[in-house]
Design a binder for these strands. Structure first.
Lengths: 339, 339
DNA sequence: GACCGTAGCTAAACCGGTATAGCTGGAGCT
DNA sequence: AGCTCCAGCTATACCGGTTTAGCTACGGTC
C-alpha cells in the first residue's frame, strides 16, 4: 500500500481556498493576492506537497521529460566515455528545470524510429536529442512529421527546421594534420568510423583537403565500425603493408588504444616508427604508455549546451544553431617526428 | 501545434461502444464478447491508437517506468563499461513489458537521496535499482520508508526486506588467488576500490582469507577511488617499495590498465616481474599488450536478471534474492610465474 | 446613484485513461 | 410462468492537476 500523498485538494481544504487558487499560487501566476499566495505556499510546504507528474502531464500536455536514444548494439559501446560525459552534461542542465531524461539503448535505427513513434504517441517525452546523424538521416524527417521538438547533436547545422549543437570537426582535423605535417609526416593514414555517419564524412573530406594543403599525397582512410577489433585489424593492415604510414589518426579513443596494442605486438615503436593520434581524449589515452596525443573536447559542457538548446526550443523559441568550441589537440608522447 | 492523437473516446465513437468497453477490450480483460473485442481492436489499429502514458499513469497509479541513479562525480565514470552493459541489459528486459528506464547521474549520495524523494512524491517511477551499496547504506531504509519497490544490485542479499541480485565476489576472489598461488606467487597486493562500498569490503575479507589459505603472508590492500590516477599512483608506490609484490589484483579494469602503464614506464616487465589481474573484463583488457588476465562476468545478463527481479516485485511477488553466476577468471598474457 | 472595470476568488469542465455500480436481455432452472 | 443468474454492456465517478467562465465586492467616474 502506497503512502497517501497530499494533493492540491488537501492544500485547498487546509488553506480554505479553492483548487484553482492553489494551482495559480503554486505556479506563480497572477490571480491571487500576495497574502493568499503566501498562505497557500506555507500550507504546501507544511504538507510537503509535490506535484504528481502524471496529473500535470495529462492536463498540461507536457511530460517534463526529454529523450535520448542510442542505436548501437550493446557490445560496441561501453568503452567510450563520450556518451557518459554527454549524458552527465545533459542532466546537469535539465535538472535545473526538473526535466527528466529518458535514456534508451536500442539495437538499430529501426528500433530507434519505432521508439520515437511510441514516445510521441504516448506523449512520454516533450522532445528528443538526435545523435550519430547519418547522411540523409530518416530521423530528421520523422521527428518533424511527428512535430517532436528536437536538437541534433553533432550535426553541422541546418537539418530541416531542427535546432543543432555541433563542433567544427573540419577545423579540428586541420589542427591534427598541421601537428603531424609540422613534425615532418608525409604518409598519414586514418582509421575512420562508420562510413554512413555525417561527422565521419565531414572528417574524411577535411582530412583529404588538409593533407593536400600540406602536400601529403599518401592520405588513406580505412572505414571501421568503431570497435576495438576493427581498429586493431585496420592498424595491422596498415603497418604490415608495403609502404606503411608514419602516422595514423583514429576516429575514437578505443581504436587508437587498440592500434597502440597492435604496434607494440608488431614491434613497431611509437612514436619513432609510427605516430598515433586519437579523436576524443579520455583517461584511456592518458593511461597508455606512451600516452596518446588526443583531440580533447569538453563533452560535459557540450551536453549542457545541447540541453539548454532543447529547453529553449520547448519554450517556443525558434530553433537555434549553436556551434561549440573547436576541439583542442593535446600533444603527448605518441606523436613525434618520423624516423 | 501538436498533432491530435486518437483517444479511446474516438475508438468508442467509431466502434459504437462505450469508453469502458474499449478499455476492457484493449487490456484483454473479460467483460466484452470476442466479436466486439475484435472490432474494437480493429478500430484501434486503424486509428493507430496508443495509450497516453500520463493518463494511464494517473488513473492506474503506475508510472510504467523504473529508475536508476548513479551517484558518482561525472569525471570518475565514463571508462568503465560495466554500467553501460548493465543498462543495456536492464532495458532489454524492461522493454519486453514497455517499462521505461529513468537513468540519472548525480554528484553524490545526498543528491541521490533527494532524487528518490522526488521520484516518490511525484510518482515518476514504480521502483528503483540500487547500486554501489555501502556498509550501513541509508538508501535501504529510505526506500523502505517511502514504500518504493527496489532491487539491490550487487549486494549479497538480505537488505531489509528488499530483493537483491548479486554475484559471489568472495568465490571470485578465491579463484584469482588460486590462479596466482598456483603460479607460485607469494607476495600479492591488491589495489582496491572505494573503502565504504559493500562489495569492496567483501572482496577485502575474501582476499585476506584466500591469501592465508595459500600461505601468502604479504597480502596488502591499498584503497582508491576507482580512478585511473589513484590506480596509477598506488601501483607506483607498490612497485617502488622495498619488497614489491610479484602480483597485483585491481578492483576494476581502468586501474589495471593504468597499473600496466606505470609498470611499462618503470621498466617493470609484465608478467615476468609482476603479474596483473583486472576485476571486470572489457575490450580495454584485451587491447593491452600483453592482454590482461581478467575476471569476466556477463554484465548484460546480470542486468536482465535484475530487471526481471524488479518486475516480479512490482507484480506483488515477495522480494527474491537472486544469485548470479560466479564470475570467471580469464587468464591472459599479464599473469605468469614470478621470476 | 447608476455604471463600469477589475482584482481576487470559486465552480466546474477538462485531459485520457481505469474502475465500478448498474442496466438489459436471454438462458437455465423449478 | 416466474424466478434467478450472468455475460455483456453503459454510464459515471475518479485520478490530480490546469484552465476558463463567471461571480462578488470594491473603488473610481460622471
Amino acid at each position: 500500500m502506497r503512502v497517501k500523498r497530499p494533493t492540491i485538494r488537501d492544500i485547498a481544504l487546509r488553506a480554505g481556498v479553492s483548487k484553482g487558487a492553489v494551482s495559480l499560487a503554486l505556479n506563480g501566476r497572477p490571480g491571487v493576492s500576495e497574502e493568499t499566495r503566501r498562505r497557500i505556499l506555507g500550507v504546501a510546504d507544511e504538507l510537503q506537497w509535490r506535484p504528481n507528474s502524471a496529473a500535470r502531464a495529462l492536463s498540461a500536455a507536457r511530460a517534463d521529460s526529454v529523450g535520448l536514444v542510442l542505436a548501437r548494439p550493446a557490445r560496441t559501446l561501453g568503452v567510450e566515455s563520450f556518451f557518459f560525459q554527454l549524458i552527465s552534461g545533459l542532466q546537469a542542465e535539465l535538472s535545473t528545470r526538473s526535466v527528466a531524461l529518458m535514456f534508451q539503448v536500442v539495437e538499430d535505427q529501426a528500433a530507434e524510429i519505432e521508439l520515437y513513434r511510441r514516445w510521441s504517441s504516448e506523449q512520454r517525452v516533450d522532445g528528443v536529442f538526435l545523435v550519430d546523424l547519418r547522411v540523409d538521416d530518416q530521423r530528421i524527417d520523422l521527428v518533424e512529421r511527428l512535430r517532436m521538438p528536437a536538437v541534433v547533436i553533432g550535426g553541422p547545422g541546418h537539418h530541416g527546421g531542427l535546432a543543432s549543437v555541433w563542433a567544427d570537426d573540419a577545423a579540428a582535423m586541420v589542427s591534427i594534420i598541421e601537428h603531424l605535417g609540422a613534425l615532418g609526416h608525409r604518409r598519414i593514414a586514418r582509421v575512420a568510423g562508420l562510413p554512413g555517419l555525417l561527422h565521419t564524412e565531414r572528417r574524411t573530406t577535411a582530412f583529404h583537403e588538409a593533407a593536400a594543403a600540406w602536400g601529403i599525397t599518401a592520405a588513406e582512410c580505412v572505414a571501421t565500425d568503431y570497435t576495438d577489433e576493427q581498429g586493431a585489424s585496420a592498424t595491422r593492415d596498415l603497418l604490415t603493408g608495403r609502404t606503411p604510414p608514419t602516422a595514423i589518426v583514429y576516429d575514437n579513443d578505443v581504436m587508437a588504444v587498440a592500434g597502440a596494442g597492435v604496434a607494440a605486438e608488431l614491434g613497431v615503436a611509437v612514436p619513432d616508427d609510427v605516430s598515433l593520434v586519437a579523436w576524443d581524449d579520455s583517461p584511456l589515452c592518458r593511461l597508455l604508455h606512451p600516452p596518446l596525443t588526443a583531440l580533447a573536447r569538453d563533452t560535459f559542457a557540450f551536453g549542457e549546451r545541447a540541453a539548454k538548446t532543447l529547453l529553449t526550443v520547448l519554450d517556443g523559441e525558434p530553433p537555434a544553431d549553436v556551434e561549440d568550441q573547436v576541439p583542442v589537440l593535446v600533444p603527448r608522447g605518441s606523436t613525434g617526428p618520423p624516423r
